[in-house]
Nucleic acid binder design. Structure first.
Lengths: 147, 147
DNA sequence: CTTGAACCTCTAGTCGCTGAAGGGTTTATC
DNA sequence: GATAAACCCTTCAGCGACTAGAGGTTCAAG
């Protein structure tokens, strides 16, 4: 039986995060000690490890919830799990593309500035005039990854 | 004199977002009509365009606040603006690197699954066993870009 | 039996917006 | 001059995924 602190250490999670997962129903309500403290078993350790690993791979908590359901009902879950992962891959690839456009624009902005200490700063100039940009560097929502 | 709606349309911003920028002090309190509606002039249009462009380039509102201060005090602001942009570039490059590790891992996970409809799903398997991963695909905070 | 680390609940804050409720103003048309 | 539509106002709550803090309780070691 693990305390919440031990579980946190083993999975690289903060204690508060585990309690948060419990409040949103991602982790089950665990057993309690006589004094009311949470006690976890190995099944719960596995579940949390699964969740954290999903988070590290950028899955949203909703996606992880779906994947957990699939893992619990093993009958032909593969196609569903695959499509969730495909969706995640696509999101990751979209984000990479957008960030690369940003990277290009930022690099150009910085290298144009650099040495000459004239009052005309390229960085500020570029921000003032969008027309100076070469790429379409709009950034979409980046909400799925927490700290 | 522009209404808030006209300003929103011209800058591709939502009306609420402009009001939000005002509450956090990023946009000044504008003039008002007799009936109390906001009226903007061209200086305010420029400022909002600057802010939005900074957001498109992934700068946080705090970074944009600093850049606006620099733009207002033109004396040798170039080095400061440059270092803010450098920091932003580094963040973008870090995020790209992490996302590419994710992309690699997700692709591997998906391609290993694919055809064989056996109950053993690679996607779920990989999530269960972190040790199967080849890369260090930890994802950091992605807080700086809104929707 | 005492200490102190770890636990508990509850609430509020983070970031950058977004949406909605419940009104008031402006403008165009009749 | 009336009316209606389109716009605007304030205020508050919510998103996702946590994180931090206050103020109190429990547990394990010495």
């Amino acid at each position: 039986m693990l305390t919440i602190g031990a579980l946190a250490k083993r999975t690289g999670t903060k204690v508060q995060t585990i309690r948060y997962y419990e409040t949103i129903g991602l982790m089950p309500e665990p057993a309690r000690s006589e004094g009311g403290q949470r006690r976890y078993d190995l099944a719960e350790l596995d579940r949390l490890a699964f969740v954290r690993h999903g988070r590290q791979l950028g899955f949203s908590l909703d996606a992880i919830r779906d994947l957990l359901d699939l893992a619990d009902n093993p009958a032909q879950s593969c196609a569903d799990a695959d499509s969730i992962a495909q969706r995640q891959l696509k999101q990751v690839e979209d984000r990479i593309a957008r960030l690369q456009a940003l990277q290009f624009e930022l690099k150009r902005m910085i290298s144009d500035c650099g040495q000459d200490s004239v009052a005309q700063c390229r960085v500020l100039e570029v921000l003032r005039n969008h027309s100076e940009c070469l790429t379409d560097h709009e950034v979409g929502s980046d909400r799925s990854i927490g700290s």
